[in-house]
């Protein structure tokens, strides 16, 4: 009897690839952004939430679509620059 046949069927199911997980997460975050704009919350809080979600989406695109997950120093660098950019945008939004 082969080893694989002793594994329960459910655990042998293939997990989605990292790219598929990234895509599903991006769609979920996009829906979350849309939902956020419908909620009765102060505009400053809303702006911060929207930018945080945009940053999260950007990082997923960099890590999975652009494959920077294979190069953590570059992923960190891009994330830091994008975070700095979002902070500047948020600062200008708050003024």
């Amino acid at each position: 009897m082969g080893v694989s046949s002793s594994i329960p069927k459910r655990s042998r199911r293939r997990l989605p690839s990292p790219i598929t997980c990234a895509w599903l997460t991006l769609l979920a975050l996009s829906v979350a952004s849309a939902m956020l704009t419908l909620m009765p919350i102060p505009s400053k809080l809303l702006g911060g939430g929207i930018l945080i979600l945009a940053l999260a989406k950007s990082r997923i695109i960099l890590a999975q679509y652009l494959d920077l997950a294979t190069s953590p120093p570059w992923l960190r660098g891009f994330t830091m620059v994008l975070t700095g950019f979002a902070v500047v945008i948020f600062g200008l939004f708050l003024i």
């Binding site: 952004s33 702006g47 945009a54 950007s58 695109i61 960099l62 679509y65 950019f85 979002a86």
Partner: peptide, 16 residues
Amino acid sequence: MVDLVWIMLFPVIYLL
């Protein structure tokens, strides 16, 4: 890259 630009452009132009 085009995707990434839109992800940042959309909230800035349309939502903030």
